[in-house]
Simulated assay, not measured.
Amino acid sequence: MNGYLLLITAILGEVFGSTMLKASNGFKKILPILGIILGYALAFYALSLSLKTIPLGMAYAIWSGVGTALTALIGIIIFKEGFNSKKLLGLILIIGGVIVLNLGGTH
Rank of each mutant, 00 (worst) to 15 (best):
M1K: 10
N2I: 10
Y4K: 01
L5E: 15
L5H: 12
I8N: 07
T9S: 10
I11D: 00
G13N: 03
E14V: 09
V15S: 01
F16W: 02
F16S: 13
G17D: 02
G17Q: 07
M20R: 02
M20K: 06
K22R: 15
S24R: 08
N25T: 12
N25G: 15
N25V: 14
G26Q: 08
G26H: 10
F27G: 09
F27W: 15
K28P: 15
I30A: 14
I30G: 12
L31H: 12
I33P: 04
I37Y: 06
I37Q: 05
I37G: 03
I37H: 07
I37L: 12
G39C: 10
G39S: 05
A41K: 08
L42E: 05
L42Q: 07
F44M: 12
F44N: 10
F44Y: 09
Y45W: 13
A46H: 03
A46N: 05
A46F: 00
L47W: 04
L47M: 12
L47Q: 04
S48H: 07
S48E: 07
L49M: 15
S50E: 06
S50G: 07
S50A: 15
L51Y: 04
L51C: 08
K52H: 13
K52C: 12
K52V: 11
K52T: 11
K52P: 06
G57E: 10
M58F: 13
A59T: 03
Y60R: 14
Y60P: 12
I62N: 02
S64H: 11
G65S: 05
G65D: 02
V66S: 01
V66H: 03
G67R: 02
G67T: 03
L70F: 08
A72G: 09
I74R: 01
I74S: 00
I74D: 00
G75E: 00
I77H: 02
I77Q: 13
I78S: 12
I78A: 15
I78W: 13
I78D: 11
I78R: 14
F79W: 07
F79Q: 04
K80H: 06
K80N: 09
E81I: 06
E81T: 11
G82Y: 12
G82P: 06
F83Y: 08
F83M: 06
K87G: 07
K87H: 10
K87W: 03
K87T: 10
K87N: 08
L88K: 11
L88M: 12
L88H: 10
L88V: 15
G90V: 01
L91W: 02
L91V: 01
I92E: 10
I92R: 05
I92T: 10
I92M: 13
L93F: 06
I94S: 05
G97K: 06
V98E: 05
I99S: 01
I99L: 08
I99T: 10
V100M: 08
N102I: 14
L103Q: 09
L103S: 04
T106Y: 15
H107E: 09
